[in-house]
């Protein structure tokens, strides 16, 4: 697996710049440490055990995605079956029930663009406000957010459903998108990040020049927040992509299902009278579901890691 960050240069450029802008009270950490310690084979071996643990199930998934329904029954789960049916399975996954899987994939993308995008936008705006403004009610906001999140969501599902139903939102994409717009973790991350990354003097200077608040935000603050935004975007994307319970309650029409719900419906098809058993497509579909996220993590890792770094330094 190749990654854009090489091992010999621990701090990628983006990471470096992200840190350079971070808190004034921290002295800048240098990219290279003097007397870099020797590499340890023992430590590498031990860490490899953890990798084995995290990756083995994914390999199992990939191996079993190559099997037919009867191959799943006949063969050992640890290794390939006689027939290599991966391409057939992928083909079947996308064509089963008139290609409804594609529809679910597109729905998921829609929810991610609107939900995760919107959540990131709201978190960036909110975090910026908490970091750089003093306003009435500010102290109460975050405590309320934390308190609300501590209440188990399953019990709130029915009240939320009834409210949304009255507003005519159930069985529409909005029933999934609107609740996704709130990311308390994103708000927290942006708050901390904005505090560190945007020197207040810079904002003052922009205001002195007569820039409006909106203009100051977009032209001065936003560029400085970029690594943090990527981080929040990735986390909200994961949350939206993996969203299961709320869509389960809100959506009846399979036309609007996200992938998680669709896969679960396929899986439970085996539990119904006369239902076609398609565990092979469930497994292949699961594999296809996680690939885009893994790809996104790989390609964007230098950004999100630097954003997270600034976020976690705060105490």
């Amino acid at each position: 697996m190749s990654t854009p960050v090489t091992t010999s240069v621990p701090a990628a450029p983006a990471e470096d710049s992200g840190r350079a802008k971070s808190a004034p009270r921290l002295r800048r950490a240098k990219a290279h440490r003097p007397g870099r310690p020797k590499r340890s084979k023992l430590l590498t071996a031990l860490t490899s055990l953890v990798v084995l643990y995290t990756v083995a199930p994914l390999i199992w998934l990939a191996v079993n995605a190559t099997k037919t329904q009867s191959g799943l029954g006949d063969s050992n789960g640890l290794w390939f079956a006689d027939d290599f049916a991966l391409w057939d399975n992928i083909h079947d996954t996308f064509t089963y029930h008139d290609g409804v899987f594609t529809r679910w994939l597109l729905n998921t993308l829609l929810y991610v663009v609107l939900g995760a995008g919107g959540a990131t936008l709201l978190a960036v705006l909110g975090g910026y406000a908490l970091a750089k403004f003093d306003f009435p009610g500010k102290r109460g906001i975050f405590a309320t957010v934390i308190g609300a999140v501590a209440v188990p969501g399953t019990a709130l599902a029915v009240p939320t459903f009834l409210m949304f139903s009255k507003m005519g939102l159930t069985d529409t994409p909005w029933a999934v998108v609107i609740p996704s717009l709130v990311s308390p973790f994103g708000l927290y991350l942006m708050w901390v990040f904005a505090t560190e990354a945007i020197p207040t003097e810079l904002l003052e200077a922009a205001r002195m020049d007569g820039a409006s608040e909106a203009r100051t935000f977009f032209q001065v603050a936003l560029p400085l927040l970029a690594p943090g935004i990527v981080t929040v975007l990735l986390f909200t994307t994961v949350a939206t992509w993996n969203n299961y319970f709320l869509p389960l309650i809100m959506l009846k029409d399979p036309e609007w299902y996200p992938l998680t719900l669709g896969l679960s419906a396929w899986n439970s098809q085996a539990e119904t009278v006369g239902g076609e058993v398609i565990f092979n497509l469930v497994i292949t579909g699961s594999l296809i579901t996680i690939l885009p996220l893994i790809a996104a993590f790989l390609f964007l890792q230098k950004y999100w890691q630097s954003g997270l770094a600034a976020g976690s330094v705060k105490e």
Binding site: T44, L263, V282, T289
Partner: peptide, 26 residues
């Protein structure tokens, strides 16, 4: 800094987070 292939470890150990709970549990 004592590991061989650090970024490989970093990303592979993080990967499961990208797997939906539904898929992970299945």
């Amino acid at each position: 800094g004592r590991l061989y292939g650090k970024s490989f470890f970093r990303i592979t150990i993080f990967l499961p987070y990208a797997v939906p709970a539904v898929v992970a549990t299945l």
